[in-house]
Design a protein around this nucleic acid. Sequence first.
DNA 1: AAGCTATATGCCTGTCAAGACATGTACTGT
DNA 2: ACAGTACATGTCTTGACAGGCATATAGCTT
Lengths: 119, 119
Amino acid sequence: MATTFDVLVEPARRRILDLLRERPRPVGELVGLLGLSQPGTSKHLRVLREAGLVAVRRDAQRRWYELRPEPLAEVDAWLEPYRRLWAGRLDALEQHLNERKETPHAHDRSRRRRRPRNS
Amino acid sequence: MATTFDVLVEPARRRILDLLRERPRPVGELVGLLGLSQPGTSKHLRVLREAGLVAVRRDAQRRWYELRPEPLAEVDAWLEPYRRLWAGRLDALEQHLNERKETPHAHDRSRRRRRPRNS
DNA sequence: AAGCTATATGCCTGTCAAGACATGTACTGT
DNA sequence: ACAGTACATGTCTTGACAGGCATATAGCTT
């Protein structure tokens, strides 16, 4: 069984969750918003469903997917002990986020790693 | 460049971070604690380093790795809008269902029985 | 100098997952 | 019944990556 991290590592799936955070949506709407194929979208939704991150409601041919945020608490719990660590270092944190924004490879000093799947 | 999610999806790397949260450690110590090969450990450390999640200090042949929690703020920021949702989710769900009740078409049939075909 | 220790890197291979396409399934309206 | 809509699933290919071993690199000790 996939962990919540395994599910969230795929950018399209994080985007789906972001979209469902606003309101439930049928698959077709997600297909349009994501720019993915319908089968591809359905597969991502299946992974999300099996991880308990979304629930489906049937409505004739349509399936309305809605967010179920509970499994995210697992990630939140892992993150928790770290949160106080950067709380004392807000300066360093801001600098880090700015570096990320402007020069995406600021930390990548040796070999460049290609992002999976986005080219 | 790998996102922080890409880095964290690997359990061994999350474990490394957990170990470095206590104190900086040389590679050999991590090898023992993780039960991985030394090259495998070094590779994970490289990924963590390139993502800015750890920093290295040289000490003769040893390299002391220490935690740099700042990039985790990226994950925390993504998680932020969800955090309130799983706390007050029952309220949100109730409100949502009430909205749906007043909608004249469609959603009433959502509770239809599933065919016993797929368990 | 040689030899030892600690770590990094190269190369190879198996595995696993995402994407594309075709097809199956379920429901609707005429 | 038929055609169309909305979605799921199966199959295949391809690429990324973890893990293994061998080897390179760097510093220490004698």
